[in-house]
Amino acid sequence: MRIDAHQHYWSPAHGDYGWLADTPALHAIHRDFAPADLAPLLDRAGIDGTVLVQAAPSEAETWRLLALAAEPASRVRAVVGWTALDAADAPARIRRLAQQPLLRGLRPMLQDLPDPEWVLGDALLPAWAAMIEQGLVLDLLIRPHQIDAARRLALRHPGLAMVVDHGAKPAIAAGGFEPWAGDMARLAAETRVHCKLSGLATEAGPGWRVDALRPYVAHLLRHFGPARLMWGSDWPVLNLAGDYGRWQVACDEWLADLPAPERAGVWGTNAARFYGIK
């Protein structure tokens, strides 16, 4: 089974995508993206299913994604949604969402928060307990300055399965390697957190070269190991810096030296296990 462990659908008309402004930088993705747009790309890439991830900080979007995922032609195998984890009724919200068979995880949009230690606040303790109780995973949308808080969160809540999205978004375009590299190595060594091999092309920017990204991919492979990495496209954000086919070909090259079972893990088995995809 080949799984794209990170993709999005959205419609700006709903009004809850505050980050998706119609600016020159985002014009290429400021439109509707739906299953019919992704299907031919999945076919060409031989992808069997996807993990559909929230892109708006609203429960309304999560319910829209769940409805899309339930359509007969959908190849969505799991949905990572959003709810207000610091709300007084967060546990009830989490339990209600968890009743949906395809809802497998939640993702607060941490990269947009001014406080890098927000995840460590006491207000979130009931939410973490409810997620553990319901068997939901936590997707960590973080930047390099938030890695240490993610590490401490994982150490405090070992029962909560977590995955770092997009390799924690290293500053590839600026040539940034440290302290990202050291912090990610420590996170991998001290916790059981997983990591997605996704989003790196966007951090490198248009015109990215396979060799320029290779040190970052090699670092993630070295420290998380192929058993804790999962491949994702981050489509359609990926369109800002390339396309689905080019990202797939590049990842095939970076993973080519792995033994076949480990390569299959990164391409899908790990995501299936992590998100409970059958």
Rank of each mutant, 00 (worst) to 15 (best):
H30C: 04
Q248N: 12
E262N: 03
V266H: 14
D148V: 07
F224A: 13
W82F: 11
L20I: 01
V163H: 12
V51F: 06
L197E: 01
Y17I: 11
Q134C: 14
A69N: 13
R214H: 06
W19N: 08
A173N: 03
G105M: 02
H223E: 09
N239L: 14
G81Q: 02
D211L: 03
G268I: 03
M162E: 04
P35R: 10
E133A: 07
A272N: 06
L120V: 09
T269N: 11
P126T: 03
H27M: 10
A201W: 07
L229R: 13
G242F: 13
L85E: 00
W247P: 01
L113R: 04
D234T: 10
G225S: 05
V237P: 08
T62N: 08
E117C: 11
A189L: 10
G205H: 07
R2P: 08
A21P: 03
A127D: 01
S58N: 08
A154P: 10
L238D: 05
G49W: 15
L213Q: 04
A98E: 01
A150V: 02
V217G: 04
R44Q: 15
A73D: 15
W128R: 04
Y244N: 09
W63I: 08
E133N: 02
R151M: 00
R77T: 01
I47H: 07
L97N: 01
W63Y: 14
L113W: 05
V237F: 05
R107P: 12
P261C: 07
E178Q: 07
L26R: 08
W231P: 03
R77K: 12
L38V: 10
T62K: 05
V217Y: 09
G46D: 15
L220V: 03
V164H: 00
